[in-house]
Write a protein that binds this DNA or RNA. Sequence first.
DNA 1: CTTGACAGTGAACGTTCGTTCACTTTATAA
DNA 2: TTATAAAGTGAACGAACGTTCACTGTCAAG
Lengths: 193, 193
Amino acid sequence: MEDKKLRSRIREISGFYADKGRMPSFSEVGKLVGLRSKNAVSKLVKRLEALNVLARDEKGRLVPGSIAYPVKMLGTVEAGFPSPAEEELADTLSLDEFLIGNRDATFLLRVSGDSMSGAGILPGDMVLVDKGRSPGSGDIVIAEVDGEWTMKYLKKRGGSVTLLPANPAYEPIRPKKELKIAGVVTAVVRKYK
Amino acid sequence: MEDKKLRSRIREISGFYADKGRMPSFSEVGKLVGLRSKNAVSKLVKRLEALNVLARDEKGRLVPGSIAYPVKMLGTVEAGFPSPAEEELADTLSLDEFLIGNRDATFLLRVSGDSMSGAGILPGDMVLVDKGRSPGSGDIVIAEVDGEWTMKYLKKRGGSVTLLPANPAYEPIRPKKELKIAGVVTAVVRKYK
DNA sequence: CTTGACAGTGAACGTTCGTTCACTTTATAA
DNA sequence: TTATAAAGTGAACGAACGTTCACTGTCAAG
């Protein structure tokens, strides 16, 4: 089969999965790509399995392969963009899987102050916070000090604890009494436009 | 049913979906949560539909509801963490859906220089680049100037084009001849640890 | 104690699923 | 042109699916 036709069929199936969150059945694949025979679909599926576009369960049911990982990972900025042929071979990645370690315990918070701008966390950014992780020295944490919530570097030295901003305009915080650490920042996400 | 039992059942089903990338069948749900009758499963599914945990196609097939959006979105850092009861009502979000606009045209590049550190893009960060978007003035772009790839602010003034770093240690670039813009940076992602 | 609502069982049923087989059409190369 | 492989058709088939119905156990309220 021409490469182009196969490509467009893969795109159809990916689109279906992205839309609905489930894989199409064989007959649905047929309608999607314009095949009237389920046998033809069966052959197509075998090819897509070989290409890791989709796969099968231990129960034999269709599950997404690279389809589930929507973004292609290339090299570095300096390397620029590879040729289209190389692009096809690129690893694909799901940001959800990449960024979220502990599904049930991670949350998304919007950043409003600029006290961590020195660490590349700007107002308006979103941070992923893991509530279930034990904070270590050097981690960026969400903490409640004397009734107020902030995001700061956590520094432990000896027995004492300091909350350190990443902006010289702010002062380090040495909590008087209460210091509740609600979670550790595990990722930062910024969307433009 | 006790809330706790229902909660754990939802977790089972979410886990199945996260693992396999597909929803379980009714009998599989049965095994998962410990129900031997498909009728019992049917009743459970109706409840979960009402809770938007899962939903159904126009074809009546199970599709993920909030399950597909793995991270709970809360307020701002200053607001801290709400009480567990409020947490349950939080909107959930898929980072893939949130960050990726143009599925087929967006790619992930790793940042290696510090020329954009003033814009909160540090070495080691990942940037999402949309190849299919027409770059506007003020956008951060991936460009090839005189054979080298860089990431810079794009400034258009009159007919001339300048590439502006966000770090005073670097000089603005006024391309002599060739300037290929490969894509627009649509998001930044940083993972700690 | 009785009633009723709720959670679950087990079986029957029609539908849809994916596999398979024999066959036809289309394209490629000798 | 003829041979040959690849791409697709259409139908048959058993298995699994989700729906539905009649029924059982449990527990709290009247």
